[in-house]
Amino acid sequence: MNGLQIHKAGIASSVQDSGRVGTLSLGIPPSGAMDRPALMSGQHQLGHRHDEAAIEMAYADFAATLTEAHDVVVTGAPVQLRINQQACRSEGVHHIKAGQTLEVKATHEGIYSYLHLSGGIMTTPQLDSRSTSPREGIGGLDGGFLKDGDIVPLGAPDKSVCASDPQLTIKNPTTVLELRFVAGFQFDDFADEAIRSLLAEEFTVTAKANRMGVMLNGERLHSGIAALYSEATCYGAIQVPPDGNPIILLNDRQTVGGYPKPGAVISSDCLRLAQSRPGQRVRFAACSPEEADRIGWLERHYLETRLRDRH
């Protein structure tokens, strides 16, 4: 079988594409790549016409052997790449021969890196996506994170179509990352003091961060809101549990929740947050829905420009 034999999977590697659409009402989160531009960059460089999946690696520490020859690209958080024990530059498309071994190791920046292989990953899609939702046991390889010894099935590469690197790697600021958010949900019901702290104080990314969400630490936010009826969450929702440490909900979030939320961080800043290591300083900034629309439009336009055919 044409496959990727995994020797070392690392702490949280999984098959991800752009995620699921329309499954929230089933209680299934969208999942999908935490860093969408990184996913698109790899698809672009390998000339993938469809939404091929990649292997997402958190703090990459990954080693695998290819049973057949494939072109390979690694995108997202910068890595050290070795092919058959030979260090090579990590950017660009690499041709790997059958039987060669690939090692991917995280550097000091970012969290999520993506391994893309020509021919694509051929796990069976569920609900129209190959993305893994580990908590629900859906998608990917047997619904879970990849393990040492797993073999990921790959498609036969068609003729090699490679494009240049569209340079979409997220560079987070060394100082403070701004999280722009659209106020909503229980914003008006939050205690004034909590809103003042949310808008004025600096927070820090904690180690309690994964595909479900990122917990921040800083001035405790006491919403003063007692019980809530469970309602839909959304990407970027700022969830404030009773301990007062806000959690920004991301791709594998629960689809409903009963904790108060003063708003939701816009998607382009969620990507940056997802790629932030513990200790990253962040600050919230309110942004109107119209401003969020404008930023979204500009970001999409930028991506389209970067990903215009340059084969």
Binding site: T23, L24, S25, Y229, E231, A232, C234, T255, V256, D293
Partner: peptide, 22 residues
């Protein structure tokens, strides 16, 4: 309209990016 979720007292309508005419 890509998705909708009913809570105890809420209806949340999700739109595809750029398709929401606010």
């Amino acid at each position: 309209l890509t998705d909708s979720v009913i809570g105890y007292t809420t209806l949340t309508l999700f739109f595809s990016a750029s398709a929401l005419e606010r």
